[in-house]
C-alpha cells in the first residue's frame, strides 16, 4: 500500500492531504498537512478547526510546544479517523489516537500565524508507516510493508 504525497512546486515542502473525522461531528474535513519529520507532534491548526465549526477550547489542553519562540497550547482531540487517497485512487482509512489542535496565535496583535497543520513522527510511529522521498524524481509516499 502506498499513499502518494505532494511535493510543492519548488520541492521545498512535503504535503499530505486527507479527510479527518472526529467527534462530535464525524463528517469528513479535508486537511492539508505539512509532513514534518522534525516534529514529534501531529496537530491541526485552529484555523482548520474553525472550518469544522467546533471550538478548540472544548478539547482539553494536553501540553504546550515552542514554535519560533511562541508557546502554543495543544488541545487533545484523541481518536481520529484519517482517510488518505492511496496509489489505486481508493480511500485508505487510518486510525490515529494522538491528534491535537494547535491554539492559534492569531489573537495577539501584530503577530502573523502561518496556520499550518503538521503531520509529525508520532503519526508515522503509531501507524507503522514508512516515508519514501525522492525530490529529484518528484516521488514521495507513505508506505506500509
Amino acid at each position: 500500500m502506498k499513499i502518494p504525497l505532494l511535493l510543492s512546486p519548488k520541492k521545498n515542502v512535503l504535503e499530505a492531504y486527507c479527510n479527518i473525522r472526529f467527534s462530535p461531528k464525524n463528517i469528513p474535513l479535508p486537511i492539508r498537512f505539512i509532513v514534518d519529520t522534525g516534529s514529534s507532534e501531529t496537530f491541526i491548526d485552529e484555523i482548520d478547526v474553525m472550518r469544522y465549526r467546533v471550538f478548540t477550547k472544548t478539547f482539553p489542553v494536553s501540553n504546550s510546544i515552542l514554535i519560533g519562540g511562541n508557546k502554543i497550547s495543544l488541545h487533545k482531540i484523541g481518536k481520529t479517523v484519517m482517510a488518505f487517497k492511496n496509489d489505486s485512487g481508493a480511500m485508505e482509512q487510518i486510525e490515529f489516537n494522538d491528534l491535537k489542535i494547535a491554539e492559534s496565535a492569531r489573537s495577539r496583535q501584530g503577530t502573523m500565524n502561518a496556520g499550518a497543520s503538521i503531520l509529525g513522527m508520532n503519526f508515522l510511529n503509531e501507524s507503522a508507516l514508512h516515508l519514501f522521498l525522492d525530490p529529484t524524481n518528484n516521488v514521495a509516499y507513505f508506505g506500509k510493508n
Binding site: 492531504y17 479527510n19 479535508p30 492539508r32 482517510a83 487517497k85 480511500m91
Partner: peptide, 9 residues
C-alpha cells in the same frame, strides 16, 4: 469523500 479530497488537493 474522494471527490471532496481531490477538489481540496
Amino acid at each position: 469523500e474522494l471527490k471532496l479530497l481531490n477538489d481540496f488537493e
